[in-house]
Nucleic acid binder design. Structure first.
Lengths: 229, 229
DNA sequence: CGCCGTATGCTTACGATGTACGGCGAGTCT
DNA sequence: AGACTCGCCGTACATCGTAAGCATACGGCG
């Protein structure tokens, strides 16, 4: 028979297929029917493994986060931060569409593995000498920067990566009234666009700033937490 | 007659209606039919003023950017940067869903007004003493940070703003295995979550870092641009 | 062995979406 | 007057998420 006791579809396999389709064909290709086809099943069968499409997308997010590659750590906290940040960016760029999912309101976390990157980052910041409070703040600062940067790389609002769009952008900048002189002066550098270098630039700013802060109040562990009621 | 020569629907009015619906009822409510109803017309009539839905969404983005409020400028470049950043964040928070649009790949810019915030930011950075090249880099650093931060505020992946979600997140953190000690220690501060303060923290890091850079190579204008072929 | 509850999958169907296509009425030009 | 254009409408279609019900297969029981 064709329908021999087949491999019994799991949530993991569904999500994996969805991630594959998303990476290969874009987020709009991720429909229940498309994913079902991908795993050799009809659309409605997926609902035995995911609650609904939102849940599927949540699953993709967690799946991606769980793929974070933990960089080796050395003695220099700044370099450790840099490596962590680069790794996070690399991950986000590997699945360009996941930023769009992050930008939506996501459901509660379900898998433990997807929290490991956060734990990793927080340890790193604490080991740099930040208080728990400052670690939380710095976490948001770095997280925001990295995700926002990648978003600008992908979405290309106000300075994107792909040459064609950048070219169009620059052409438009050149055609602008004279009052946009700063834009016209800087446009070539938008075009040049070595995004790795640009990423490092901002990363450097954050780390320098953090260095100043660490130097200012060195070695402080966590003081008492705020009342969380 | 009811159908007297009525106000002749324009692209602007369509986009304005779409923005209103998006702000009031969320991005998923923005359908061609819904917007058409909003302006008292049938869905297909919209296509005389926007190419397709993508174009409409592009229009929303530009419309929002054109709403940027230019803060007054003083003598302190750092304070000027802060004001500009706060203004940009305020704008993004005023239309929380627009971040999701920015996260997608957007079409080419069409309106001049929507470029003014960029021009403003670049002037500001140049007046701080940055070279054109560094201004471009810093622009991406600040832009990335601000947008990413707001995205985290809204989307709440790894530390969101609204209390309910944060609470759930913290509860989950507390229930985590012991290996997540950093996360557990910092969780209260994620919960506390004075987002304004957190925003200022990251902003400060960037500005401090920039200050170091400005101090290092002071007053340099723009050197020659790279070949843009 | 047969029996049955519970997973798992399929089929059908419904309402909503973006938009291609063609028609219709009014204003403008020759 | 007649032709043409412009703004708008109505209809139609493919695709989407998913609710409801039916079919089949598997595991634990007698």
């Amino acid at each position: 028979m064709a329908t021999r006791t087949r491999e019994p579809l799991t949530r993991e396999r569904v999500i994996e297929a969805a991630l594959r389709v998303m990476d290969d064909e874009g987020l709009e290709a991720v429909s229940m029917r498309r994913i079902a086809r991908e795993v050799g099943v009809e659309a409605m069968s997926l609902y035995h493994h995911v609650e609904d499409k939102e849940d599927l997308l949540d699953g993709i997010c967690e799946r991606v986060m769980a793929d974070f590659e933990f960089p080796e750590q050395g003695d220099d906290w700044a370099e450790n931060c840099r490596r962590g940040a680069r790794s996070w960016r690399r991950l986000l760029k590997k699945h360009p569409n996941v930023m769009r999912l992050f930008a939506e309101e996501r459901g509660p976390i379900r898998s433990v593995d997807s929290m490991r990157p956060t734990e990793f980052a927080l340890r790193l910041l604490r080991s740099a000498g930040l208080s728990d409070r400052d670690a939380a703040q710095a976490f948001h600062a770095f997280g925001g920067y990295i995700q926002g940067f990648v978003m600008m790389e992908n979405g290309s609002i106000a300075g994107g990566a792909d040459p064609e769009h950048a070219k169009a952008h620059a052409a438009l900048a050149a055609a602008l009234p004279e009052e946009f002189d700063a834009l016209q002066a800087v446009a070539p550098y938008f075009l040049e666009c070595d995004t790795d270098e640009q990423f490092e630039f901002g990363l450097d700013l954050l780390i320098r700033g953090l260095g100043a802060k660490v130097g200012a109040s060195p070695g402080a562990g966590g003081q008492e937490p705020p009342r969380t009621g």
